[in-house]
Design a protein around this nucleic acid. Structure first.
Lengths: 254, 254
DNA sequence: CTTATTAAAGTTGTCATACAACATTACATG
DNA sequence: CATGTAATGTTGTATGACAACTTTAATAAG
């Protein structure tokens, strides 16, 4: 059992509750070089003293670290840094989504996945799933005609395709990525709506995907989905994103 | 502001600390149908009473829910279920990794990504990154000669390719997936090591990937990486996984 | 001296109480 | 009815106590 490394507390400067702040500080500490897997954090009382907060705050912060899979506690013994494990989640730090580059990186990840998702959907889709996909595509059109932004309908469309992969992880991951791309999707769709030619192109791209899935042609589906996402990425890149990102930030600060 | 829905507490039966158990129960409740985004959880005191635990336990559990992005608290007002947001993590439930099908589904997700990663690495890799990739490939061989299982070296190899994408999300996501596939990788490599012909095939697959990246040929890199991962998946599928999964489970129960 | 047993100290998990800071509701006044 | 004040309710934090467990230290026995 490794000894408790030297505990260096830097002044907590972030905003939020004390628990939030201690959690952030401990997380950084653990992700640093001093606390290797297996090493033991100082006792709750010592940490409370070091941070200048009550034991309650420490316990709440440590409870969160446990949820992140970063530590495990053993009653009577202490709190220990965990090895790489299946409990740690995959996250994208929301605070980085204030740069155009970061948005495009997330878009790129999604782009990579959508091609694969469409190919698998073409292989595995059931009749019912095909009906749902076609219905979702139709709903995009109905929403547009009703004057809506179409973002939710677009998400439902892509979700219906991900469901047809029969692999829940594709669905969960794409849903996860939607969270980061709602604003970007809104931007893209707004831009596409300003030009009839673009709008038509997007419809055709969607149709090509659906057609390939219907025909159960994975290669065509992959290609169509990639081309659609690449087109969307290009269209996103041709819009001045900064204005929208500034809005996004003010919205998130409530 | 929506009213607080009816609060139905089912007897907590799972193991772990009370905080763990209340957290699980609340999470299920929130993911159910009664608590829509915007709705308010009962007050801490009421939940403590309902669950038959102290307010401390509730607070610790709610602190975790906040970390999961599932709720937000407003001092003086209450705890509210959040909309879809960028704070919620992507997780794969470790408990499902006890079935062969689930392992193969995670493998499939990784398979999809590795092709895209290799293609991007071929487009973007720097000289230094190319050196690191070749070095990592050499290290696999050295580890095998030293009698090691080669799992860590294999991970380092794939990691070096993901780094060459220049997109941190691919790297982070593939690292995340490694956590679930360590055992499967061990199984595959063990099986591959039992037959000289297989072992040679894997080396050639690796070489083909590295060659394509070196030549900066994205299509060849994508194809080579997909073929390698498909081969690995087939090889994994031809092993009796159940024995190993049983072992994995007993290891995780400490 | 070595080994085994017991006691003491330390640590996490939970409970209870109190107060600060904030929000909501109820009541009184013009 | 609108406005202001008081009362009540809720989250955030601190403190103290005790239970359940682990580790270390002290003591007794061979």
């Amino acid at each position: 059992m490794k000894s408790t490394p030297e505990f260096k507390v830097e002044r907590i400067t972030t905003t939020g509750t004390l628990t939030d702040r201690v959690f952030d500080a401990l997380k950084q500490l653990i992700n640093g070089e001093d606390f290797q897997p297996g090493s033991r954090l100082p006792s709750e009382l010592k940490m409370a003293s070091r941070f200048g907060v009550s034991r309650t705050v420490i316990r709440e912060a440590v409870s969160r670290l446990k949820s992140e899979g970063l530590v495990e506690s053993r009653q009577g013994s202490g709190v220990f840094v965990r090895d790489r494990n299946m409990h740690a989640p995959f996250r994208i730090d929301p605070s980085i989504m204030d740069s155009v580059q970061s948005v495009l990186q997330v878009v790129e990840l999604r782009l990579s996945l959508e091609g694969e998702i469409a190919a698998l959907a073409a292989k595995r889709r059931t009749r019912e799933q095909m009906v749902a996909i076609k219905h979702a595509l139709k709903q995009i059109e109905l929403d547009e005609q009703a004057g809506k932004d179409g973002v939710e309908a677009d998400i439902v469309f892509h979700r219906s395709i991900a469901e047809a992969t029969g692999n829940p992880h594709f669905l969960a991951l794409i849903e996860f990525l939607f969270n980061f791309l709602i604003k970007a999707t809104l931007i893209t769709r707004s831009y596409e709506a300003t030009k009839a030619a673009l709008s038509q192109q997007v419809k055709e791209e969607h149709l090509r995907i659906v057609d390939a899935i219907s025909r159960q042609d994975p290669e065509a589906a992959r290609l169509a989905a990639r081309q659609h996402m690449e087109g969307a990425s290009r269209r996103l890149g041709s819009v001045d994103l900064k204005r929208f990102i500034a809005q996004s930030e003010s919205q998130d600060s409530h």
